[in-house]
Design a protein around this nucleic acid. Structure first.
Lengths: 362, 362
DNA sequence: AGGGAGAGCTAAATCGATTTAGTTGAGCAA
DNA sequence: TTGCTCAACTAAATCGATTTAGCTCTCCCT
């Protein structure tokens, strides 16, 4: 039965190949060569000698048969895939998704599609994905908060990563300014005993930001007490990690009036730990987060935070990768692009409690 | 210097083509045919007659030249792209990202990559993206909370969408059970005047869920007051929409002791509106959300919500699309798969305030 | 000596487009 | 009638793999 059908189809030369229409079928149907049809459909200058009537026939047939050129064949021939790869640590944490959203807007408008791969901090995947994407002929790579050490022959843009490899453009926040904004704000409110929650060791922002914080603290004459410094551990994207880290600080018994966390998500968890310890925000302890994710404004109290322009960083990343792709590999390219943080003051920070402060300094 | 190198390379027939090594170059280097090299590298049974020594030479050369087969060529020949397309409304809202995270896990492990496209509810994009992805020879399509009306010759899985097109497998929550869980919970706490925030009209879950709610309400003997029903408007993924919707309900002056929102994000916004109106949660008004996003547990008070197993829905979606791809288009496939909601009781719901209730009923 | 078997390869077709380098026939001038 | 130009096309190469259908030896058996 399948054989019979095959024969019949071949006789009519209308075999359906799963409903997919090839250029050849279209050309056969029209009694023209694939050359002509291709020239017409691509509106090539070489098609100028072809009469409008023929063109119309071609367009009509293409529409009728719902012809869609095979992008794989097209890409193979043109040596262009119009595809980029994006590597992120984790999709569900809001951070990457926000950057991705900026990336996407720009890429799709330019006719590109992108592959996403998330590695969840597994070293093996961090190494393999760039190669797998390279095999799939992506024309560029955007890595978000991910170390990149391979040396592939395609442009790479690293968003929020301390990357120094060849051929990589780094897009990063001005961390020094960010640290300064936050600490100055706390200092203005009279805070002197400030606790910190650092990021996970695997996050590429952690070290750089901490360095900026210590530098800013020194400049402002604030001392950092090691007892008051905790660190996020584990790679869950939930506020749980901040909750645990804050508990650690509270457990030391060292007094503090403010807490500066690595990101908003951990600030949210930390706030809960404080509440559970009987400390109210911001009366007893001020909290300042980082990133300004959507829900930051809707915490209770609304979270003061250092806004990182994630969406714009994504857009800038996409913009840069496209420029670098069209420029070609020989052209010059920026090694480093910086974006500016912004302090968003809400209600989780307030004047340091003087009573508490006295106790603290006693 | 680069020029000199280029010339030398060409003479040796080792031109680098941007650092990309083709099978042909590799074969030339080895003095073998591409056939042999291909057979060896793919460990084809036809390579059984080839002596180990030759194989080793091939492997060594491939490694040395860092040969990576061109996936486009491979795909074209094999008529398999090992790629699926995923269409979402919005990347940054946590919901899609969560589902996507489930999808991704499963797909990448199976050797597939996926394209993501987000349409932000623009009708034109909702129609175009399936075609663009089809052109790129995705082998399947996963649409998340998005209407799908095209009729392409590839398997389609719709997650959270009321899709009835041919060839589509729908994965949806058991909304009736979800509505029942929430309303039963509120009823148990003595709530009778319950306010609702419905989803945006464009969200495919909105109608179906509302129907389930009215049905459950009837079954439980609860009446729904039209004054107490509001709706999310606009397509921002921020809690702002819930904030506005809740303000609308408050403005009517109609008393209520509980609020059931379309999702957690809007619940968060609504909670703020209530606080600003001088109503405390849960003492004056209980709030119950939907989805159970990461931050729900970290609200103040922690949010009671109907958990939607988003990650699992993504996983199930990926699982299903892969099964359907390998089965082929003639095979049978499920039209509908249902996942179960779960009531997560936290502190945003409590016993209805009888005083308030009296005032309300006066 | 002739034939068969198997080892160790390769030529060429194929996937579906694009593109270069033509070909064919009509019309027209000299 | 020859030669030229131009309109309207087309054959075939190409991108980089996979895969079918051989091909050429050598060795061994009878």
């Amino acid at each position: 039965m399948p054989q019979k059908r095959n024969t019949a189809d071949r006789e009519q030369n209308t075999r359906e190949t799963d409903g997919r229409v090839s250029l050849k079928m279209l050309a056969d149907k029209l009694g023209l060569s694939t050359t002509t049809v291709s020239l017409v459909l691509n509106d090539s200058p070489a098609a100028s000698a072809i009469p409008q009537q023929t063109k119309d026939r071609v367009f009509a047939a293409a529409k009728f048969l719902n012809y869609r050129p095979n992008y794989l064949a097209k890409s193979l021939r043109a040596q262009r895939s119009f595809t980029v790869g994006v590597i992120v640590p984790e999709l569900s944490d809001g951070y990457s998704a926000m950057v991705l959203s900026g990336v996407e807007d720009y890429l799709l408008k330019a006719g590109y599609f992108y592959f996403v791969a998330s590695h969840r901090h597994q070293t093996k995947l961090i190494e393999e994905y760039p190669h797998m994407l390279f095999e799939r002929r992506v024309e560029g790579l955007i890595v978000i908060d991910t170390p990149y050490t391979q040396n592939l022959q395609i442009p790479v843009v690293a968003i929020s990563g301390s990357v120094n490899a060849d051929g990589v453009t780094s897009i990063a926040l001005d961390h020094e300014k960010a640290a300064m904004l936050a600490l100055q704000h706390l200092k203005d409110f009279g805070h002197r005993r400030i606790a910190f929650i650092k990021g996970q060791t695997f996050s590429s922002d952690t070290a750089i930001r901490w360095k900026a914080i210590t530098k800013a603290a020194k400049k402002l004459g604030l001392t950092i007490q090691s007892k008051l410094v905790s660190q996020l551990e584990g790679n869950s994207p939930s506020p749980e990690l901040g909750y645990v880290a804050a508990q650690g600080i509270i457990a030391t018994g060292a007094p503090f009036t403010a807490l500066f966390t690595f990101n908003d998500v951990s600030a949210i968890g930390a706030a809960r730990a404080l509440r559970e310890a009987g400390l109210s925000v911001p009366e007893d302890v001020s909290i300042i987060g980082f990133d300004d994710v959507y829900s930051a404004a809707y915490q209770n109290p609304p979270l003061t935070t250092v806004r990182q322009p994630l969406w714009q960083m994504g857009k800038l990343g996409a913009d840069t990768i496209l420029k670098r792709i069209t420029t070609g590999s020989n052209g010059p390219y920026p090694k480093r692009l910086t974006v500016e943080p912004e302090l968003v003051i809400r209600q989780s920070t307030a004047i340091a409690p003087s009573a508490n402060f006295k106790k603290a300094t006693r």
